[in-house]
Design a binder for these strands. Sequence first.
DNA 1: CTGAAAGCGCTTACAG
DNA 2: CTGAAAGCGCTTACAG
Lengths: 344, 344
Amino acid sequence: MITIYDLAKQTGFSAPTISKALNGNGKLSDETRQTIVEAAKKAGYTANMAAKALSTKHSRLIGVILEDVSMQRGFEHPLFGGLLNKFRKEIELAGYDLLFLSKHFNEGMSYIDHCRYRDVEGILIVNPIDDDEEMKTLGTCGIPCVSTNEFIPGVCTVVTDNENAGQIAARVLYEAGHEKIGFLGAPFRENSPAALERYKGFKAELESYGKECDEKYLEVCSAWWDGAGYEGMKKLYERCPDITAVFVVCDALAFGAMKYLLEIGKSIPNDISVIGFDDDTTVLKAAPTLCTFRQDRDKIAQLASEVLLQGIAGVPNPEIVRVPAEYIQRGSVRSFRRIHQMAY
Amino acid sequence: MITIYDLAKQTGFSAPTISKALNGNGKLSDETRQTIVEAAKKAGYTANMAAKALSTKHSRLIGVILEDVSMQRGFEHPLFGGLLNKFRKEIELAGYDLLFLSKHFNEGMSYIDHCRYRDVEGILIVNPIDDDEEMKTLGTCGIPCVSTNEFIPGVCTVVTDNENAGQIAARVLYEAGHEKIGFLGAPFRENSPAALERYKGFKAELESYGKECDEKYLEVCSAWWDGAGYEGMKKLYERCPDITAVFVVCDALAFGAMKYLLEIGKSIPNDISVIGFDDDTTVLKAAPTLCTFRQDRDKIAQLASEVLLQGIAGVPNPEIVRVPAEYIQRGSVRSFRRIHQMAY
DNA sequence: CTGAAAGCGCTTACAG
DNA sequence: CTGAAAGCGCTTACAG
């Protein structure tokens, strides 16, 4: 391993001068800077991050909290996997590396201890465990944070505009002529409100058309996977056999719901129209006609990285950043009107 | 931040003694060790990894190379995502963190420079870019490596026993009474031989039954995704309409292949039997009856972490470790015999 | 514009 | 069994 002192000997300058030249700070003549930079290149010099981190207190490490209890898919989660791919690219450009925070590290540290241990400079909270007490402390732990799903006090959240998506779903179905529309949700939570927000927007939109939104058309499934969608749809349909459409908060649930509907002999969309959410590749091949919403994972990742980098630089963060979801029109919605092709 | 010196003052011992007590090395009386450990706990002390790394030359960081050009799914790759979930858990227990190696880091470092920069202690090569020249140098770069797919000179590979899986596929189809069996492959490569090895085993097994394995029943698709499977199946079937079964090297390809077969009016398995590979969740919902092979991602990850940790500890690694794949019997294979339920 | 000194927080021989 | 000294590779004031 070649160090700054080797370079000092070779060039005749002192170690601090080498440091300044290589980091581009301090005042140096262009000439000495050049000679030093060239010498470093020729010698194949690579700085030692541990030494850098120790003296500057900057590790250039971003901690990531990714637990995914709700879907149990880890890196393979339909939203989070892709989000992480992009986020990683963004921060690497800025010279940061990702570091997964874990509660199981070294036989059980807290996330924050893990951060201190590694001098983590910022935290990306992709998806924490439900009701994790430690989350509440993150906003005041002194390390800049950004969240891409959960609401955490004092932490900026970059997240899909779920209410707007809910509105669009309601509008699509309403304008297609549906009168009785079901809503298949997932557990409503205050901090992780994707399902709740989608319902709020959906309900508000229907009400804006002067329709009362009867609670009996709402069924909250017990989880986010397809088995729960099957059960939820069964309950909803047995209670409200008059529905002609249903908006489901995620594609995995929608897949289960469709499975039930198909099993009882219903045709989609002729008997019942379905709109899902996520544009989940796991479901797409099986249900290629399912209308859905695509969350803009690249955009969320990019904005999250910007917010976090700003936070590290000391710039105050906004409280929340919303990213629109895109409605993907395919074939699972029947229109009772034949007026025109709608564009959303 | 509280340091070892704070602890020294509080307890009356010297810094080196604190260090020994906390790390459990050196000789110390149980009494002083206890007082120190308790004081550390009470003070909420967390060691500083940068300082540790600088003085010990051990960063406790494992570099990961994950590019996934072939499937373009990044973290969402059917094999690699799950493998990484498990690998991460294993090495965290040993006090290591994952660090993704990148060629785009800091405006373009090599993997090895990235490693030196972070003092990475070991490298997990999950899936590199095809024909990456740097791969050839990894085996002799001085950093212990383990690969979970690609063959790299001087590096231990922990990988599915593809030949054996190919044999099983051939046996299943042969014993079911199939005579003309197609093989749908993906690009055959020397270093990343999953497709090639599956073919070798498949061919050897058929030959062991005294059947000649005509090359015309082999079709190599252009890539690993479903569009390529569609095209490949089309070519294969138009050339060999006499086949009654086909073994496909991955589920995504199998999905494309089945799409073609269905389109031309064939029934699966009545007209043509299909076996895939990967037990890919992305395909499973769409093709729930597809017989396939499940690679043991947890086992591969666990063995890879063991090999790597051993390598870091200076224990020489084996050249290759094979992990059996499990044949998943479902409904896409027709049997012309009605003898008995086979168990594999 | 350049360098000598001190420090970041920890560990490793080496004395005692 | 415990501690004084030196060092890991880098950077930050501070002189000159």
